[in-house]
């Protein structure tokens, strides 16, 4: 467990969080490489199944990074994403993976520092929670 490096998948909205991550890079801010970013056109496009598949394939944590309240480029995509995240959290609790492994955060395109901070906090939180209970099997199956 000492060598455990969590895998965190971040679904980042093109109009805010992804740009914030880009800005973090431009500003030469460091954040843990554990966070694997998937750019999405809007977090409202992140299907519940996308999140589930991330866990199924071995992610220890997932983060959905959306625009600030009222700032969605498509008006209510971030609101819809919040409902999806709530539903998947309940499902993860039901499965026994733990809903706390799924986070939703909101930030604007200019928040490079905030993105780096969130990436660090989530990585540390997942590190404390330990490997996902499904990770061992899925990683072994993937290697086979």
């Amino acid at each position: 467990m000492e060598n455990f490096e969590p895998v965190v998948v971040a679904f980042a909205c093109h109009y805010c969080a992804y740009t914030a991550a880009d800005m973090a890079g431009t500003k030469r801010l460091s954040y843990p490489p554990n966070v694997k970013i998937i750019r999405v056109p809007c977090t409202g496009k992140v299907d519940m199944l996308h999140i589930m598949k991330a866990f199924e394939k071995g992610a220890d944590g997932v983060c959905v990074a959306a625009c600030l309240d009222g700032d969605c480029h498509f008006r209510t995509g971030n609101v819809r994403a919040a409902s999806h995240v709530d539903a998947v959290r309940k499902l993860l609790d039901e499965i026994g993976v733990g809903g706390e492994r799924l986070e939703m955060v909101a930030l604007s395109a200019g928040m490079g520092e905030r993105f780096a901070q969130i990436a660090t906090e989530i990585t540390e939180k997942i590190r404390k929670l330990g490997p996902s209970p499904v990770r061992k099997v899925s990683v072994a199956a993937g290697a086979a």
Binding site: M52, F55, E56, P133, S138
Partner: peptide, 13 residues
């Protein structure tokens, strides 16, 4: 799809 994923994970544990 969601149930399949849930069941797979529940047994994977």
């Amino acid at each position: 799809g969601l149930l399949a994923s849930s069941l797979k994970m529940a047994f994977s544990k």
